[in-house]
Amino acid sequence: MRSKLVYIILFLFLSVLIFNSFIDDNPYFKITSDDVILTIPKGFPKPKYNFKNNTITPEKFVLGRKLFYDPILSKDSSMSCASCHQRIAAFAHIDHALSHGINGLIGKRNVMPLQNLIWKDAYMWDGGVNNLEVQPINPITNAVEMNETLSNVVNKLKHNKVYAEEFKKAFNDTIINSERLLKTLAQFTGLMISSNSRYDKFVEGTIQFSDTEMNGLKIFKTKCANCHKGTLFTDNSYRNNGIKPDTSLKDKGRETITNNPEDNNTFQVPSLRNVEMTYPYMHDGRFRNLQQVLNHYSNPKNFDKNYDLSLNKIGVLSEQEKGDVIAFLKTLTDKVFLYDRRFADPNMK
């Protein structure tokens, strides 16, 4: 009886050992130098964030990935970046209109997807952040998000044996500071590039669109592409797309940054790549699905009084036309990106 127990324990011990070594070289999570090559997809413009002062290496990328998925960045170790940014939603958050932060506190805006970030030089719905590297300071220090201080996060990392090892692997010395934390995070998020949707294949000429999708594209080009422009589906401007301000949120949009009353209730035109997966929609998540979005654009009587005049081109869309546009928008879903193993949670093993 007793020896049986010893055998069972031995067996468990061994299997843990074997399993662990299996995880360590699990090819699914392994990052090689091939995985961190930055290739600019065909037809994309020149990136605005170039990794000039932040040379990408597999070790730094892996460290950035670990940090992104680690709740150590929050005050009570309850929240990681990934708590709000879900991979399956192109790193937006499915079903939460407004972000949920530490202690269940509700933020004032809808979580944005993380994709094609290196083509921006103004982040957030109001464009207040001017460089990808400094963006994480916002969620880390926001009282209703991770509620930490940057210096305390750095302290926690300094006193953590695993991170001491990981930073050494990445930088070949023992320095841990906010610059390194922020730069490795930027390597991880900066490589999140979506350029393999059915739409991209259509543009390449390798697949064909259905009649519905084709008609949707045509309507989109004349009525929407003025703002949702080009390969990135945004002209990066700040516009009032006709949605009325939510009086309880008191979000002034771009005016928060410029203090210019003319910018009141304007928000950065979002990219529509992977839009099928990033519901709910708009800066405050007011629309649950694309049907509601199309209903909004198709109902000029209900626009906010300061709406952008280029919306006039849209007019009233028939149900058929709305359906066609939605069918087109769904061609922007990029399964290669959504299931890209490089961005998967390494703790998920």
Partner: peptide, 18 residues
């Protein structure tokens, strides 16, 4: 972007939202 030394944003002399 991210800098160290005197310009380390952890010095508390940095606005993150703007």
């Amino acid at each position: 972007g991210a800098q160290s030394g005197a310009l380390d944003p952890a010095n508390g002399m940095f606005w993150a939202w703007n």
